[in-house]
């Protein structure tokens, strides 16, 4: 049983590691505003599928790592990821009843709130943020979400991560 626990944690951590690599891979200057929010996608998926493994606490620590990686204010991502995880857990039953396209729509809503809050906190600390550059990654992430979802579903079933 212990080995199953360990295996699950390692496999989930591995996806987050890949997500973090994708978050800091350099992109050309024109595309830099269209980077999808990989870590949030992963978080949304794992909290939805394995809430007993990844919950608010897990989201918080993933968020701290994301802060260190992207150089933002320490705790910014941690707070926002924790809020997202809490939201998903609170409406866990309702979300599970939804078909995939409605989940994508819900995820888009979460992304808008997420990026707005991020922009608000960043602007409080004296960073100039433009609204349309918040919307671009939100749209890209929402478009990519169903594919990431199917990929992760396959991953989860193949390696029996529960």
């Amino acid at each position: 049983m212990m080995s199953q626990d360990l295996k699950t944690v390692v496999f989930i951590a591995l996806t987050f590691l890949i997500g973090m690599l994708l978050t800091i891979v350099p992109m050309s200057q024109s595309l830099v505003w269209f980077r999808p929010e990989w870590i949030l996608m992963l978080l949304f998926f794992w909290v939805m599928m394995t809430p007993h493994r990844v919950a608010v606490i897990g989201a918080f620590f993933v968020g701290l790592l994301a802060d260190l990686l992207t150089g933002t204010l320490f705790g910014l991502h941690a707070l926002l990821f924790s809020l997202t995880a809490f939201f998903v857990l609170y409406f866990y039953v309702n979300i599970h009843g939804l078909p995939i396209w409605q989940r994508a729509l819900l995820f888009f809503g979460i992304l808008i709130v997420y990026f707005s809050l991020q922009a608000w906190i960043l602007s409080l600390t004296g960073v100039s943020v433009h609204f349309w550059q918040i919307l671009a990654p939100a749209v890209i992430s929402a478009i990519l979400w169903p594919w990431v979802y199917l990929l992760l579903c396959d991953y989860q079933q193949r390696y029996e991560i529960y």
Binding site: I24, V25, P26, V32, G71, T72, V129
Partner: peptide, 9 residues
């Protein structure tokens, strides 16, 4: 380092 930070920064 070939690493991107948050583009707002």
């Amino acid at each position: 380092l070939a690493v991107d930070l948050n583009p707002n920064l």
